[in-house]
């Protein structure tokens, strides 16, 4: 695995729009068969990176190689082997569900007969076979998303790029999409996705980078990131009081890190139960106590901050 040539290789990759730097010199290697995630708040540069990888946005600086080729020179040849599921569905509203797939296949030069067969298979795969003759417009958000994913697979791509594949979907639809993406991964398809859902990243990604302000701030598997940037467990303490701050001082020395939020205090600790016992030993009686395993969300918020980004 370590010796295989990366499918996507970026070095010092930069994207500027006028004075604004969207992507500020990132290094990325995506290996064959892995599911790779770009994690970050809105405006972190994830979509700009995806568009550069999709060969529809020329890089401003640095080098980018996809499937060993240069996107500015070999765009059509690279795109022939990519499947793209953009952040916003851009299905063809004048065509039916099935025609959306067959027409898209024709853009890749796939013969009509093969296109029809593949469309039927893919509609089965994303559970839309019953809606084959329907127009796109009356479909639910989840159905449109699944159709967009099916469309991204019509050319049997080596790499599938998914920009926020489950944003805006209800839980059932999200789980169905995850399950289908997991199956693709099992079939050996390389997945590259962006998300700001931690559970999505933990479920799907073998490896991921956390982006913030156009830069990569952390890199590794979900497990590694949690180990490196958080503790094993987190204790959430809620005190009935005017301010949680008053109690924060009394918790000094407990755990590796302490975070005071308006409604609760987070203690980042190795062993939750021991920490809770220590809290009680200090004569403190929190109204509620929750011990949980540290998640990617803790890593993410720790690295990119809690300030709202629009």
């Amino acid at each position: 695995m370590a010796n295989t040539q990366p499918l996507i290789q970026a070095r010092g990759l930069v994207k500027r729009f006028g004075d604004f730097t969207a992507v500020d010199g990132i290094d990325v290697d995506v290996r064959p068969g892995e599911a790779f995630g770009f994690l970050g708040p809105n405006g972190a540069g994830k979509s700009s990176t995806m568009r550069m990888i999709g060969c529809v946005s020329p890089p401003t600086g640095g080098t980018l190689r996809i499937l060993g080729k240069d996107p500015t020179r070999d765009g059509p040849a690279i795109r022939a082997r990519l499947g793209v599921c953009p952040q916003l569905d851009n299905l063809d509203p004048e065509l039916t569900v099935q025609e959306n797939l067959t027409t898209y296949a024709r853009y890749f030069g796939i013969p009509r007969r093969v296109a029809r067969e593949r469309a039927a298979e893919l509609l089965d795969f994303v559970q839309l076979a019953e809606r084959a003759g329907s127009k796109v417009e009356p479909l639910s958000g989840g159905m449109k998303r699944r159709l967009t994913i099916a469309r991204a697979l019509v050319n049997e791509p080596d790499i599938v790029l998914l920009d926020e594949p489950t944003t805006g979907l209800d839980p059932q639809a999200r789980h169905l999409v995850w399950e289908r993406l997991f199956r693709l991964k099992q079939q050996g398809v390389t997945l590259v996705l962006t998300t700001h859902y931690m559970d999505e990243a933990e479920q799907l990604c073998d490896r991921l980078v956390v982006m913030d302000g156009g830069r990569i701030v952390a890199e590794g598997s979900p497990r590694e990131l949690i180990e490196r940037h958080s503790t094993r467990e987190v204790v959430e303490l809620r005190f009935v009081a005017e301010s949680q701050e008053d109690f924060a001082g009394k918790l000094g020395g407990l755990g590796e890190r302490l975070e005071v939020l308006p409604d609760r205090i987070l203690l980042y600790v190795g062993a939750g139960d021991t920490a809770v016992a220590d809290v009680h030993a200090r004569g403190l009686a929190p109204a509620s106590v929750l011990v949980r395993r540290s998640s990617l969300e803790d890593v993410f918020l720790h690295l990119t901050g809690r300030t709202l980004v629009d």
């Binding site: 999709g54 529809v56 765009g75 059509p76 040849a77 795109r79 022939a80 990519l82 793209v84 953009p86 916003l88 851009n90 299905l91 063809d92 509203p93 004048e94 898209y104 853009y107 890749f108 030069g109 469309r151 050319n155």
Partner: peptide, 14 residues
């Protein structure tokens, strides 16, 4: 409005 070409440009079509 239909953003049709955004989808088309993700294929080999230029």
């Amino acid at each position: 409005f239909m953003k049709l070409y955004d989808g088309v440009l993700a294929t080999p079509v230029q």
